[in-house]
Design a protein around this nucleic acid. Structure first.
Lengths: 326, 326
DNA sequence: CTGAAAGCGCTTACAG
DNA sequence: CTGAAAGCGCTTACAG
């Protein structure tokens, strides 16, 4: 079923059908009605491929996340969706699983003109293989950074947040603060680790133990904590870079027969709903999650509408939330 | 940058460039190399819109979920992705938020030929507005059913699982079993409620209280439980149709100063990781989550490759998991 | 082994 | 207010 057949059915030209489809009001009422009738009668649906090929505009934004199971990601996506919708854009979500082949395949949607721009929450900038797929297409990094700053980014000041946590834990009298970090290919992981190391050094504390979680989930948090508990010198506090990891840490600690926060304090990161579900509830850094998503869309649309505009860096505020775990 | 320009650069016809792009091996080595060089030199990326318009095949599957924040959905999606990837397909995820306008917009990807088929985890079949968008395009309902059975479905036997839970709770001596269900526009919600009602009636138990959660999340579970606790006759057991709701129930019960399972037993549904995170850990029904996703893809591809084939209903096994909450 | 040409289904100046 | 025609960027018989 094509515009051709509708035109034939309605006894008008394809141009007129197209005008009706696009709500161009120069069409005479009678003709409009006949087209509308023909469309209804034949259950015609316009071919988006043809339309977008012609107009070179898709109205779709690609969102690449490494892992939708992480509630933080899901919350950011919600912000993205809300703002995109408000501006007449639709979201396509791709779960990269941090897999380069899958990321590559997703980005073909961009280079292949199926989407108008991309918001990524993954460590793409470290992957030169992907650069030529992105080219200078509209792109913003969300809750992650790009060193070259050739791309717009939105996030929080990770170093400061990290330093704040260390200060807080030291103030509570903790002596041996361990960190459960994410893969260092993520820039935010570097920054949070920097804050951790710097602040401990400044305070003359030389206990420093860092584990790197393969994934930001409960299981990784649990097994990395088990590692920490097997080490010679136990930590008396754990700073996990995501609430999901922190939830895993709590489990491991409980399974070892230890108490939180008495024996070991645990601090999470993100401020997701998980912080209410765990026992004890999580002390954590709250990110302005949906706001990050909204801001990302704003920056992306600015770039789409004015391709010549300069990349922008947007830094939003975080908030420390004290609950029972530390 | 188009195939035309590459052809000009390489001094061959567009047909030859196309052949190189599609790995058709009739191209003479010299020409192939010149095309490859031209592609590299100009960082050419094929336009997917044009290709797919021409071939009428996209290699993409649309997955519609009502809420990616639900870990059950995320797990099913993982199964879908794995199986799709194995068959050379790529996934596009759309988060409908149970919003009809958004669902409609997503389904245009199907009617607009941008994807080859759709797997939905949402209650679409109850929405006649969407039927004409789907038409007879390849479609499978995942963890949800269609009465007309004009569509393939994959899921578990919800009635049986529900009856099992009731039996278990009665056996434990529970007298007043309440249910926190989801919106009845979901067929699975109907089935589980049917199991609940039927079994209670069969056992001569006439306490029956049902709350309907607006969303399958922690917050809804919590507030519906608060409602239950305000009612005249408190339940001594709560059957929640998802682990997320059950997690909310646990919070509300703890906040009311009551103990689980001593005062109130709680049973969840799905068998997600959340069941390990809550305190106490959740007694729940485990669904074969990733398997459901894989099976959905299998059925969908069968339909795509043989459009004339009949819809199939696939019923997988569930498992009762006893943990501390009931 | 290769190229000219048709065509996928749209939109959009342009002319009337 | 409307239609004929060009063209978006590909693929694919067809002829050579």
């Amino acid at each position: 079923m094509s515009i051709q057949k509708i035109a034939r059915l309605a006894g008008v030209s394809v141009a007129t059908v197209s005008r009706v489809l696009n709500n161009i009001d120069t069409v005479k009422a009678g003709n409009r009605q006949r087209v509308l009738d023909a469309i209804k009668a034949s259950n015609y649906q316009p071919n988006l491929l043809a339309r977008q090929l012609r107009t070179a505009r898709s109205g779709m934004l690609l969102v690449m996340v490494s892992n939708i199971s992480n509630p933080f990601c899901a919350d950011v996506v919600q912000g993205i969706e809300a703002e995109a919708e408000k501006n007449g854009y639709r979201i396509l979500l791709c779960n990269s699983g941090s897999d380069i082949v899958r990321s590559q395949s997703s980005l073909q949607l961009l280079s292949g003109k199926m989407v108008d721009g991309v918001i990524s929450m993954d460590a793409l900038s470290t992957l030169p293989e992907l650069q030529n797929l992105i080219g200078d297409a509209p792109w913003v990094q969300c809750a992650e950074y790009d060193d070259a700053s050739a791309v717009s980014t939105v996030g929080i000041n990770d170093i400061e947040a990290s330093r704040f946590i260390i200060d807080y834990l030291l103030q509570q009298g903790r002596q041996r603060i361990a960190m459960i970090n994410h893969d260092l290919s993520y820039k935010y992981a570097n920054l949070r680790e920097k804050g951790y190391r710097e602040r401990l050094a400044e305070r003359g504390n030389d206990y420093c133990q860092i584990r790197y979680a393969a994934k930001l989930n409960y299981d990784s948090g649990k097994s990395e904590t088990e590692h920490l508990l097997r080490s010679a010198e136990w930590p008396d506090a754990i700073f996990a870079v995501s609430d999901t990891l922190a939830a895993g840490a709590l489990s491991a600690i409980a399974a070892a027969g230890l108490k939180v926060p008495e024996d070991i304090a645990v601090v999470g990161f993100d401020g997701t709903e998980l912080g209410f579900i765990t026992t004890p509830q999580l002390t954590t850094i709250e990110q302005p999650t949906t706001e990050i998503g909204k801001q990302a869309v704003t920056l992306l649309l600015r770039k789409i509408n004015d391709p010549g505009s300069k990349p922008e860096q947007s830094i939003l505020d975080w908030r420390f939330i004290q609950r029972a775990s530390a």
